[in-house]
């Protein structure tokens, strides 16, 4: 599904990501963990086209997508959330999701402005789809509230739903559990499993809540200073001395 081949990302003299080789199969939930500033978000940014990697190739479903624009990559089926929540702040909760629906609407500026019947039908369908998604995370009743008036934890859920509205095949989640308490994190884990099955997704996620990572990911990559220092299943990673030293600490 996703494959990065020797991806490097440098900022001036700083190598944020070095020789990243990640491979994810369809239907997997894979984790990307590591200390602060290890290069996890940067790795996401090279996959989603926010940055063009300094070196290396990114392949999605076998096709080279290195250096494509972010919107083209989204169109091909990769969606993401942002670590520093980036909702459209002057828009309602529902509108935030509807923006993401536009991609698959297939209506241009003329059809939209003229409110052609074809467009109206698709718009109604998009609304129903968006409302259903909001319902699935318990945000339906807040649909008309301004997005930024939501408490932090709900803004995170809205980000996930908005990404889902682009109908992705691969979903990249950047710290979905940040701002949630342990109980809410448990619910989030169930939610992640559920959307994977329901929407037939492959998921790559960055997370610092070990309970969540170990609970949902079948395997994970560990980065430190941009370098992949470990790779394997939850148990293996938790025992890895390098990972404990750089990231987990001893309990």
């Amino acid at each position: 599904m996703l494959r990065t081949e020797g991806v490097y990302m440098r900022f001036g003299g700083l190598t944020a990501v070095a020789d990243l080789n990640v491979e994810i199969d369809k239907g997997e939930i894979v984790g990307l963990i590591g200390p602060n500033g290890a290069g996890k978000t940067t790795a996401f940014n090279t996959v989603t086209g926010v940055y063009r990697p300094s070196e290396g190739t990114v392949r999605f479903k076998g096709r080279d997508i290195t250096g494509k624009k972010p919107h083209e990559i989204t169109k091909r089926g990769i969606a993401r959330t942002f670590q520093n929540i980036r909702l459209f702040k002057d828009m309602s909760v529902l509108e935030n999701v509807l923006v993401a629906c536009h991609l698959r609407l297939g209506a241009g500026v003329a059809a939209c402005t003229l409110h052609l019947p074809g467009y109206l039908k698709k718009e109604r369908e998009a609304r129903a789809f968006a409302e259903g998604l909001l319902d699935s995370v318990g945000l339906r009743s807040l649909a008309d509230e301004p997005a930024t008036s939501l408490p932090y934890g709900k803004q995170r859920r809205l980000e996930i739903v908005r990404a889902l509205a682009t109908k992705p095949e691969l979903l990249l989640l950047d710290e979905p559990a940040a701002g949630m308490n342990p109980q809410e994190s448990l619910e989030l884990m169930e939610f992640i499993h559920r959307i994977r099955d329901e929407y037939d997704l492959t998921i790559l996620l960055i997370e610092h809540h070990m309970q969540v990572v170990m609970g949902v990911c079948s395997r994970m990559y560990v980065l430190d200073y941009g370098v992949t220092i470990a790779h394997g299943g939850p148990e293996q990673i938790q025992k890895d001395p390098k990972v404990i030293e750089a990231y987990l600490g001893v309990d």
Binding site: P70, F82, L87, M91, H102, A107, C112, T113, H115, Y119
Partner: peptide, 28 residues
């Protein structure tokens, strides 16, 4: 009509956050 439509929403999305808009598949 334009601004109330789906296209209009992408216009406002570009205003609010270009990076997020791109990531949602909007050709900014």
């Amino acid at each position: 009509l334009l601004l109330r439509s789906s296209y209009g929403r992408t216009i406002k999305a570009v205003r609010d956050d270009e990076i997020a808009a791109e990531a949602m598949g909007v050709n900014v």
